[in-house]
Amino acid sequence: MGYSANQLKNGLKVMLEGDPCAMQDVEFVKPGKGQAFTRVKMRNLLTGRVWERTFKSNESVEGADVMDRDMEYLYNDGELYHFMVPVTFEQYAADETAVGDAAKWLKENDTCMVTLWNDNPIAITTANFVELEVVETDPGLKGDTAQGGSKPAKLSTGASVRVPLFIEQGDILKIDTRTGDYVSRA
């Protein structure tokens, strides 16, 4: 499926120089007497690079077979991460590059969004908030629920976060995956 410059719009996924890219900001530019252009801010879905490109009105661009699907995270076999579409039980395996930083927040049986390109996972997006167990931290300081201060804690996924001093090993914490910050005890 190809698109002409005037069909470009936010969210459209296209192929550029062999990589799938997502359009983030599309603007029609036409000086009164000059040629028409479509100026687009794009993100390369494989590398994450964001850049600007302008298309002439008679240029066309190939669509990319990219879709986002909600899946359940199953397990890591030491090399690949396995996901399943809950309704159909279809399974997908993603490598480390595709999973990227999301690996820090992946808990078995949690639902996350898997971006597929030609039916292969290229990116994983976890929910904005996840609940994870503390597996290692210094003993909690009783009665310190109001005071400031923090300490490191290691979570069940291997991620390390700063937590308040009163947090104990075995506590379940709510984490904001966009910032990697502790939010509260779950």
Partner: peptide, 22 residues
Amino acid sequence: KHVEIDMSLDDRDAWLNLLMSH
């Protein structure tokens, strides 16, 4: 330097218009 575009070099006014509008 600012925006990627695939256009031939022969039309000076087209480049001027691009710089002006973009």
